[in-house]
């Protein structure tokens, strides 16, 4: 009797082990490096505060910001695509306490550059109803002219000639000449201003903080509030304003836990 029981148990364990083995084995040989990217927003040398703080741009125009939302995707280290469980897109929203995306299964090494794109892949602009970061509920989809708003910046400024002194930049566009999906390539700079690597090692998670400096929004686009308080559709004007994308971002810090 006892022997029979033992055999029963033995078979049971064999089956359990086999099933468990199948599930977990597939992970065994994969790279284990982890990278966490967080976005912060600065303006006039301070962290951006929505709604109440008054800022000044290079044209000496004052303004307040009420909303800042944008899409980032296609993160790469040295041109090697990174994989995140959270999906393809990070919808950054300055209203949130933190804006973070985590990547895993990265090969250990020292990387010299981190790149990503601002916007939404052109295919995802015309593939129908989407979910997650691209859900139209996120209020980043143009209902009257299909396509995503890549970058949304809203506020007020006494220099705006718009209704209620509105500042409203809804920048996007994925078609032909109007396309403004922008690739950003960042390199790490050490305290002395020399290029430094981005380390990814073992099971430690590397944390990279990227800063978006809003001062550059008006600087490089050479677009003053007075001239351009509002732009809410794709086209030449959006393209001109979005020229600033390439200089907005920089690596603020790298921590390797």
């Amino acid at each position: 009797m006892n022997r029979k029981k033992n055999i029963t148990l033995l078979y049971f364990f064999v089956i359990v082990q086999l099933s468990v083995g199948v599930i977990f084995n597939s992970n065994a040989q994969n790279p284990s490096g982890k990278l966490k990217i967080s976005l912060i927003h600065t303006v006039n040398s301070h962290l951006l505060r929505l709604n109440d703080s008054v800022y000044r741009n290079d044209f000496n125009e004052t303004y307040k910001i009420t909303k800042l939302k944008y899409y980032l995707f296609n993160f790469k280290l040295n041109d090697i695509p990174l994989y995140s469980k959270e999906g393809k897109y990070l919808l950054v929203n300055a209203e949130k306490n933190e804006n973070v995306i985590e990547f895993e299964k990265i090969n250990n090494g020292s990387y010299s550059s981190l790149s990503f794109e601002v916007g939404v892949d052109s295919a995802d602009n015309c593939s129908g109803a989407q979910t997650g970061a691209l859900d139209p509920l996120n209020d980043m989809f143009w209902t009257w002219n299909s396509g995503y708003v890549f970058f949304k910046l809203e506020g007020t400024s006494p220099y705006s000639t718009g209704d209620l002194n509105r500042l409203e930049y809804h920048l996007g566009g994925y078609k032909g000449e109007d396309a403004l999906i922008t690739k950003i390539n960042l390199t790490n700079i050490d305290e002395l201003g020399n290029p430094a690597s981005i380390p990814v090692a073992g099971k430690k998670e590397t944390e990279v903080t990227i800063a978006l400096n809003l001062d550059c929004f008006w600087k490089d686009g050479k677009v003053s509030i007075k001239q351009n308080p509002i732009c809410v559709s794709p086209g030449k004007n959006a393209k001109k304003i979005a020229a600033c994308f390439s200089s907005l971002f920089s690596i603020k810090s790298i921590i390797n836990h």
Binding site: N125, C126, S127, G128, A129, P136, F141, T143, W144, N145, S146, G147
Partner: peptide, 8 residues
């Protein structure tokens, strides 16, 4: 032709 997909 503003709308590029029937779903949206």
């Amino acid at each position: 032709g503003a709308i590029n997909h029937l779903e949206v």
